[in-house]
Design a protein around this nucleic acid. Structure first.
Lengths: 147, 147
DNA sequence: CTACGAATTCAAGTCAACTTGAGGTCAATC
DNA sequence: GATTGACCTCAAGTTGACTTGAATTCGTAG
């Protein structure tokens, strides 16, 4: 079984080595061995990291992600919990679809204030219904790494 | 024009008053008047907050959201920037759809480790392609308020 | 065998988005 | 006109997810 050096994982995924160490520390990924001091990973780690990326996109915490896709690809959570998580994602997709419509509208509509535009209003009524039951704490997202 | 007391906004939206004050402070929403010391808002604020909720769901920072839907419903960003943001959301939706498939699979598939299941592998290959160009910093989401 | 570079540990720092707490203010009620 | 209770301000604290920096340890190339 060929192992991948942490530096290579970092290079292939674009994730800083410091982050990979951090993920290892919190048990989100697992290093398979050491070459001297250096962490080495099985190729699986690339899959795991893909799952992590998806989970983050969905707004799950790293802790949630750890439980959803356990360290070896088998989840820690019971099936019905997983179904609940899936439903959350499903709802998030609906919300984002509403947002997408709204955004596209805002980008194209020439009205001076959108709050007066009837088509915008309609979008908002849809969105508002969702929003009222969706007060979640989410902490800032930003650019794909500063540069 | 009837105004809404901050307490009522909080009650109707479920957003703590402290958060509303914070949003006011950073210019994400605008209080219309004061009743004594108390902030009062126009009903518009409920719409604004709905937009904020959508924006957060999409993973935008509060600063981004402020620029996307300016204080009065007219965006600060130029149209092409907005279109770019819309495209980001569009991509996020695609990513989440992949995640949803994966999650639903994980929830139902009886295989001991999913890393071996061919159908899971296929999902991951799809997801992985996205993930590799989507290394974003996003900070933890969690439960709808501790209680 | 020494030097180099890349990775290591560990503690501390950063950042966004809030929350908490102390002490103060007001409008309305008793 | 004193009390109440919801709101106020302002500074400081918290949390999750990392990053940074100093001092250290290896494996390999020269």
């Amino acid at each position: 079984m060929k192992l991948i050096d942490i530096g290579d994982v970092s290079a292939r995924t674009g994730i800083p080595a410091s982050t990979l160490r951090y993920y290892d520390e919190i048990g989100l990924i697992t290093s398979a061995a050491r070459h001297g001091l250096r962490r080495q990973f099985t190729p699986d780690v690339l899959v795991q990291l893909a799952l992590v990326a998806m989970g983050k996109t969905a707004g799950f915490s790293l802790e949630d992600i750890t439980r959803i896709f356990g360290r070896d690809g088998s989840p820690v959570l019971p099936r019905d919990e997983l179904r609940r998580k899936a439903d959350e994602v499903d709802q998030t997709i609906r919300d984002l679809t509403a947002l997408l419509d709204t955004l596209r509208h805002v980008a194209e509509c020439p009205a001076p204030s959108h709050l007066e535009c009837p088509s915008f209003q309609r979008l908002l009524r849809l969105a508002g219904r969702r929003a009222s039951r969706a007060h979640v704490r989410r902490r800032g997202a930003s650019k794909p790494v500063k540069g």
